[in-house]
């Protein structure tokens, strides 16, 4: 039986009278690449923000490797790495300095930090840019650096929030290849509103709309439930209310 990496129970977030995430409940298993799919404003980023202890839930709870995001956020932080929707890098630091800074903040020893920095530079092919200020990198390289920074502490769970947003086709495909490789060692939660990204990368997915879960499952299962062959048609069917969850 697969171990649960994330267990979400009735998780809810209100901003004033707006309900951003509404009583969401599901599990994610160790080693999965789990997709969160929905239109803008579906609640994907809010859900990720709660799971990564950036914002507190209004009600409900979730556990990450058995630790509560509400009462054990310090332990949760030691298991996770986050690559936010924006590039989230220090612009006047070099690529190497950005990575080293993150390694130091996670408390890695000097030797460990240097080793991890070199490893990330190799894995993400950042050698030609390692001494360049990160602000001069192209969008694609900034994203790669952003993901490398999220992985520097060897997290067991990686959050990728819209990792290919705004990238050209080539940069997107390069990132997909990298994400595929990461899948072998890390549980990944990926949010996107690109259907082809979900089809190319994820093992299972959760469709969200207006803060609620519309459906969870593998793409084939969801296609079957919707009676469609193409995933795009399945998504439209669920989102427009043709199928009730």
């Amino acid at each position: 039986m697969m171990n649960k990496a994330v267990s979400i129970n009735q998780l809810t977030k209100h901003y004033g009278s707006t309900i951003a995430v509404n009583e969401v409940t599901f599990d994610i298993y160790e080693g999965e690449l789990f997709g969160l799919l929905g239109m803008n404003g579906a609640g994907k980023t809010t859900l990720i923000n709660m799971l990564s202890c950036i914002s507190e839930p209004t009600s409900g709870d979730a556990t990450i490797y058995g630790h509560s995001i509400v009462s054990q956020s310090d332990q949760v932080r030691s298991y996770i790495g986050v690559s936010p929707q924006e590039t989230a890098i220090a612009p006047n630091l070099t690529v190497k300095e950005n990575l080293l800074f993150m390694a130091n903040i996670y408390g890695l020893s000097k030797h460990e930090a240097r080793h991890q920095v070199e490893e990330m530079i190799n894995v993400f092919s950042l050698q030609p840019y390692k001494n360049k200020k990160s602000k001069v990198l192209s969008g694609g390289w900034k994203r790669k650096l952003s993901i490398a920074m999220a992985l520097i502490s060897k997290p067991k769970l990686l959050f990728l929030d819209e990792p290919t947003l705004g990238l050209d086709v080539i940069a997107r495909r390069e990132l997909w290849t990298l994400i595929e490789q990461l899948k072998k060692t890390t549980t990944i939660i990926l949010t996107t509103h690109y259907l082809e990204e979900i089809e190319a990368l994820t093992d299972r997915l959760c469709m969200m709309k207006d803060g609620k879960v519309l459906a969870i499952g593998e793409i084939n299962e969801l296609n079957k439930r919707a009676g469609k062959e193409k995933f795009e048609d399945t998504f439209v069917e669920f989102v427009t209310g043709g199928i009730k969850s």
Binding site: C53, I54, V82, A88, I89, I105
Partner: peptide, 17 residues
């Protein structure tokens, strides 16, 4: 303000800082 807008601070909020 730059750290907030670039979400660099958001990233750091998920670290032990």
């Amino acid at each position: 303000a730059k750290d907030r807008e670039s979400a660099f601070i958001t990233r750091l909020f998920t670290t032990p800082m």
